[in-house]
Design a protein around this nucleic acid. Structure first.
Lengths: 142, 142
DNA sequence: AATGAGAATGAGAATTAATCTCAATACCAA
DNA sequence: TTGGTATTGAGATTAATTCTCATTCTCATT
């Protein structure tokens, strides 16, 4: 396990908030794998072990995780908000298969550097990148 | 006015569908300006002139406009699906201000060509690009 | 002009992700 | 232990989008 706990705790303390049991469970489940996630999937995963964490708390915790810099919003998929790790992950792009839902992550900072350059020209302060494409993956093409 | 009508009609006919009055109104309102739009705004705009076009029909027509290649889904903004013209527009990126909602469009094919290259490597067929960033525009920074 | 079959419509109900409310509980410093 | 916050779960609420269905349109064919 990385030290997401430390990062998160530090952030919470700085805001006068507390690293409670439900928040710990959510945090650890989010970082149990490196995959993208949405609230529904996360909820199911959590409920297998912990019957006492509610959807509401998950929804309330996600903005805190984002604020603390641990995760960020990713491209929407199947009408649901998606999230991905930022902590411990280098920047990447996504190819999202609209058939099977697979998300291909590709390490590349090129596109971001283009956007950074353009943002500078327009005096625009970027908070979050959205770079990717949707289509059909090689498996689903057959 | 461009010949979106022709393009749309051709598409509809190819599918055994008809270019009806509501569809014509929706099409023409969408292409009355070059701006991005969402269903709510489009509905208001249409209803100023035509009291007899329902939200349902707008929601039903948008997929047809997308299928026909006239528009595409754009980055979501303020929890609403957004759309943009593709017909008669060269490819561009977006900088979306999270404060005032302004959308800065920037002509650039660079980022797309990067994604195209990567997609090719992964044998992935791109249907739609999502390239942009969210943050704060120069006006709102003050 | 009349007809008939399928497409299209408006209105409102239904769905669903996300947010909010509120009473009850947990946390922690004193 | 106490008191003051922060936090929680449950369920109600909101709001965008989709669906249902009875009615209306469209248009090729009479």
């Amino acid at each position: 396990m990385g030290n997401e706990n430390f990062v998160f705790d530090k952030y919470l303390i700085s805001k006068g908030l507390k690293l409670t049991k439900p928040r710990k469970i959510i945090l650890n489940t989010v970082f149990a794998t490196h995959e993208h996630f949405n609230v529904d999937g996360l909820y199911d995963k959590i409920r297998k072990k912990h019957k006492d964490v509610s959807r509401a708390t998950i929804y309330r915790t996600i903005p805190l995780l984002i604020e603390s810099g641990l995760i960020k919003q990713s491209l929407r998929c199947l009408a649901k908000d998606h999230y991905e790790h930022t902590y411990g992950h280098s920047r990447h792009l996504h190819l999202i298969c609209e058939k099977c839902g697979k998300i291909i992550e590709i390490e590349s900072k090129e596109a971001e550097s283009i956007l950074n350059k353009l943002a500078k020209k327009h005096d625009f302060k970027i908070r979050e990148f959205n770079i990717g494409a949707k289509g059909i993956c090689n498996n689903c093409k057959k």
